[in-house]
Design a protein around this nucleic acid. Structure first.
Lengths: 250, 250
DNA sequence: GTCTATATAGGGATAGAC
DNA sequence: GTCTATCCCTATATAGAC
């Protein structure tokens, strides 16, 4: 249950099969409810200890939070709004959270630990440069497709939280930037890639990845699905890195 | 004074000289205080009518808003915070704004109208595909360099505002996306560019541009200045569009 | 035009019955 | 474990003196 203890998940299909479906089958989160993991990770902070009671209630509360705060932000959401949306009472909600700030913290940390660790475990080794770059890109896009509300919440809300949480969010981003840059630098040494700007290129690739959950209005409007967007980003990364496109253009 | 009435600003230097300095000389905003424009644009909503009194006070208030809300968000900023930061009293502040929501609206609209119109007027014609693409990229980056707080505020805060203002912000973004895509499609027709994904490429370029004010922590940490970041984005756009880099790599 | 003092509503959080 | 009722604080906004 504790993703951070897993080192390398052995799975068939991924990352050889690069589709969203192959990723979903490889991702341990899709086998049970994500709220089961969430409950385990936060058991010590939650009053209600019976899992069969707590897990569905947590789901109710967190999904309500995502719905309300996606409209006007977490800060603008009052706990009375949350009670109305979830159908719970004030007292009921406070059996699952210890404060409004605390629940945002739990969500942020959960994404930063569980989601990141799982994707880490799904990565091919560094030697395999091109496959690793592709897996870095696709795993992030696919995870954020499967758990879009979580990613969107963390990106949008942490910027408005106390310094401590902002640090968590920026570290999360810098970790991914570091991973990307390491692969790129590796590819440059190996003579596969040609660019003098590995840092900026890594940042550009990350922004394209983040667009998938930050600007979903844009992709919905143009009916692009997760797999084909990931295809695009992988191709774009190759172009930025001085590699010819390997996607056939019609 | 009213930028929206200007059609094509005649300037020497820009866009032939692509540096930040050339842009600054061409930009009419840099000749006076931006708050002079702001006061003119919002005269009808402000109680204090004496410009020599109102303009510096507006500057004080808006700069205080930018400072406070860049930390924990506009919504988290109370008017008492604002009074303390600006040194004004509650009554004093309310002589310049009619409500908290109203001031955020004024800022959003100002960026969406004045800033956008000025950059529009600085653009070379559509026929000149490559120069126009470059000018679109550079003008946006340079304007956001000169008025970073304004851009950051609009991007971050409008997502947490009433539906009406979100629409304004998304329209602003879609306008820029449309401009980029038009140039790209033009370049494809002319046989200059090679890509099957003009919409997604336009979005990727816009994200790189927005990174300049959304992730300034990243560039500061790597000591990249506006001109060299713009160089990078122009080069990256060419790579994405199937054009070989024209920047010399060392 | 700017201040101090205040009205009024709504926020987060808790006590205690069931 | 969940509810209702309530505490107390802070928010925006305004009234009225100077």
């Amino acid at each position: 249950m504790n993703a951070s203890k897993q080192r390398q998940i052995e799975v068939e299909g991924w990352p050889g099969d690069t589709s969203l479906d192959a990723y979903r089958r490889a991702n341990p989160l899709s086998r049970v409810s994500v709220y089961e993991y969430f409950f385990e990770a936060n058991k010590h902070r939650i009053k209600v200890q019976n899992p069969s009671l707590a897990i569905p209630k947590l789901q109710l509360i967190i999904e309500s939070i995502f719905r309300i705060s996606s409209k006007r932000g977490f800060h603008a959401m009052s706990l009375r709004d949350l009670c109305q949306e979830s159908g719970l009472s004030m007292g009921g909600v406070y059996n699952y959270i210890s404060s409004k700030e605390d629940v945002s913290k739990m969500i942020t940390e959960f994404v930063g630990v569980t989601f990141v660790d799982i994707n880490q475990a799904l990565l091919p080794p560094l030697e395999n440069t091109e496959q690793r770059l592709e897996a870095l890109i696709r795993a992030h896009i696919y995870m954020s497709e499967l758990y879009r509300s979580w990613y969107f919440f963390v990106y949008m809300e942490t910027k408005n939280q106390p310094a401590e949480q902002i640090k968590t969010a920026i570290q999360l981003e810098q970790k991914m930037l570091g991973e990307l840059q390491a692969v790129i630098d590796d590819g440059i040494s190996a003579g596969i890639y040609r660019t003098s700007q590995s840092t900026l290129t890594a940042a550009a690739i990350l922004s394209m990845i983040q667009d998938w959950y930050l600007k979903s209005w844009h992709f919905k409007g143009n009916s692009v699905d997760a797999t084909s967007y990931a295809d695009f980003v992988v191709d774009a990364a190759r172009r930025l890195l001085g590699r010819l496109s390997q996607v056939i253009e019609d």
